[in-house]
Design a protein around this nucleic acid. Structure first.
Length: 235
DNA sequence: AGGATTTGACCTTG
DNA sequence: CAAGGTCAAATCCT
């Protein structure tokens, strides 16, 4: 029988409200600590259910729902930990300051959309000059390694694929589906890791500014109590 | 028909 | 100038 260690209670009042990080490093450590606590609690809760409750045959639906949600919780927390660990808070502070300056020139570019676009005499857009776009520099980004292409809850649309030097697998480029209708600037890059093809390196760029028009979860249960406690974690 | 993907060209950055 | 990020026409899929 699996031994379940007892964890110190980590109620919101005893954790998040009392933490006042003095630096980016403190903040990072605090977030990781909270996530690790949450992960351990979720793991133990799952073990507890497996051992103590069990499921009867007629409870198959409930078991599937439980399996699904516990899996989502664990994966979400695991992803958050990876993101926070790889996120450079100090660099981000510098980037945020710099971005304010860059924003001015970026806005000028986007305001007159396609200033370089020219029409040929026959009315067609010249293929020589496309719209003015800028590669986003210093935008908020973080990366994770995943053993599978987890559903992070957002709707992504592939817009490119590129062979990358010295890598075995191409890099795939995705943008938020709501880029056009809600001007959401979030993008992500997915690339299989050469040394370990079972894993994917996923780089997220920018925050979602679109409304939570998440894809429906694969399993839907009729429980109004969940409405105020969605199982996905805002990334 | 309309949305998603593919893919070659364009564009920025170092 | 090379590498890589993005665009957009062509194509695919439902």
């Amino acid at each position: 029988m699996q031994v379940i260690s007892k964890l110190e209670p980590t109620s919101p009042s005893s954790t998040s409200s009392t933490i006042t990080p003095k630096s980016s490093k403190d903040l990072k450590q605090s977030i990781i600590k909270l996530l690790v606590n949450g992960k351990e609690s979720a793991n133990q809760l799952r073990n507890l259910f497996d051992q103590r409750l069990g499921f009867k045959a007629e409870d198959d639906d409930h078991q599937h729902v439980f399996d699904h949600h516990s899996w989502v919780i664990l994966n979400s927390i695991e992803s958050c930990i990876s993101m926070v660990k790889s996120y450079d808070f100090d660099q981000q502070e510098i980037s945020n300051k710099k971005r304010k300056v860059d924003q001015i020139s970026d806005d000028q570019c986007s305001d007159h959309h396609s200033p370089k676009s020219e029409e040929t005499v026959d009315g067609k857009m010249s293929k020589e000059r496309r719209g003015c776009y800028k590669r986003r520099r210093n935008c908020q980004s973080w990366s994770i390694e995943a053993t599978s292409l987890i559903d992070d809850g957002y709707a992504w649309r592939k817009y490119g694929q590129k062979e990358i030097l010295n890598t075995e697998y191409p890099r795939n480029y995705y943008r938020c589906t709501h880029k056009t209708d809600q001007n959401c600037q979030a993008t992500k890059q997915v690339q299989q890791i050469s040394s370990n093809p079972t894993k994917y390196n996923i780089i997220y760029n920018g925050q979602h500014t679109c409304k939570n028009l998440h894809k429906n979860p694969s399993i839907i249960i009729d429980d109004s109590s969940l409405d105020e406690n969605p199982s996905f974690i805002e990334l």
